[in-house]
Amino acid sequence: MKIDVLFFARIREQLGVSRLTAQVEQDITLEQLQLCLAEQHASHWSEVLGGENVVRAVNQVVAENDQVLAEGDEVAFYPPVTGG
């Protein structure tokens, strides 16, 4: 299945990409997606995506690592926010 993956702010800059489409197996969890992305890309991806305080959202709602993903889901990784 296909998952849209978005990266923001410091994470976007560290990975050098703002958006990609990941081709993954059915019913994987958010945590498994993160491992897949790290395997498919450069070695620093594991560190950046697995870093402390990285926020993960599924379909624009903050999610936990064990959330199961579905075809076409939008997943985002972003650092702690600093708006206002």
Partner: peptide, 26 residues
């Protein structure tokens, strides 16, 4: 609402100064 904007809403600030550019830390 301001406390929410500062800590939960997906917004990020980068400061551009004479000494370079850096992401603001939470």
């Amino acid at each position: 609402i301001m406390d929410y904007l500062k800590t939960r809403a997906p917004l990020w600030k980068k400061e551009l100064g004479t000494g370079g550019a850096w992401w603001v830390e939470a």
